[in-house]
Amino acid sequence: MTSTAQVNGDVVIDVRGLTKSFGGRAVVNNLSMQVRRGQIYGFLGPNGSGKTTTIRMLCGLLTPDSGEGTCLGFDIRKQSKSIKRRVGYMTQRFSLYTDLSIRENLEFVGRVFSVPDPRGAAQAAIQRLGLSGRENQLAGELSGGWKQRLALGACTMPSPELLLLDEPTAGVDPKARREFWNEIHALAADGLTVLVSTHYMDEAERCHEIAYIAYGELLTHGTVEEVVKSAGLTTWRVTGAKLQSLSIALAATPGVEMVAPFGASLHVGGRDAKALEAAISGYRSDPSLKWTPDEASLEDVFISLMSSAQDNFQ
C-alpha cells in the first residue's frame, strides 16, 4: 500500500466507493473522498447522514461492506492497527474515563500510545490546555467546554498525523468554540490533517475544504467558494410585510427550491434562474415587498441540496 501513498503524494485520506449498511439500510453509500495533508476538511450533513459511520470506517472502528482505500497510506481494511497508532479520534460523546482525573486520563492515553514519558507528556498537555492546577480533578466533573478541550488534548498528545473530530463543538458555547477552532488552525499549521464533522455553517467556513453528505451520499465537495459556485443557486432577498404567508406560497411554487427566513427577510432560491424568475414574477409587482438579488450563502446551498437529495431519496 506504500505505492498508493507515493502516487498520491500528500493525500492523507483516499477512499473509494465506501458502503456500509446497518439492518439492510445503507447508512453510507458509495462514498469517495480525498483529503490532502495539512488541510482542515469539514464534513457537513444533517443528523443521521452517515458522517460518524464514515469517520469510524476511516479509523478501523467499522469495516466497510464494500469499497476500499487508504488512510495515511495504510489500507483501511487490513492495516487498521497502523492507522490507529497515527490517528487521534475524538468521539461525538465524551469517551474519556469520568472516574479518572485529568492527569490519569492523559497518562493512560500516553501509555497506550507508548509515548516515551507518559507522565511528562501528560504534564505538558495539561499546561498546553491551560488546566494547570486542576489536573487532579475528575474528568466527569468538568464542564462541557472543558471536557471537549480535554478530549482534544488527549487526541493530540500522542502526536498523531491525522485528527478525526466527530462533532467536537456540539453543545459548546461560542467563546469555547472560537478557542477550539483557533487551536485546530494552529495544529493544522504544524502539518496535522484534520477531518471535522459539524452542523455549524460558521464552522464550515473556517475549513479549507468541505464536503456535504446527506443520506449516506457525498453530494458536493470543494472549497466554500467552489461549493457555493457549483451549486449554481440564484437567490433573491425579500423584505416587507406578511413574509410568513409569502414563504408558504413560494415553497409550493415550481421553480422555487429553497425558501428560508433570514432575520427580517426571506431568502428565495433555485438552480434554474429563469424558472425562479417566472415563479416570483407575480409577487414582484406587490408594492409591499422589496426584492433584491442576493449572493447565495453556504446555508442556502445546503438547504437546497438537502431538499433535492431528499426528493431523490424518497
Binding site: 479509523c59 478501523g60 472502528l61 492497527k81 490507529k84 497508532r85 490517528v87 479520534y89 468521539t91 460523546r93 465524551f94 469517551s95 474519556l96 474515563y97 469520568t98 492515553v109 497506550v112 500510545f113
Partner: peptide
C-alpha cells in the same frame, strides 16, 4: 455502556 469503548478501540491496544 459508559461509551468509553469507542475511544479505547480507536487506540492502538489489542
Amino acid at each position: 455502556e459508559r461509551g468509553t469503548m469507542e475511544s479505547l478501540l480507536a487506540m492502538p491496544i489489542g
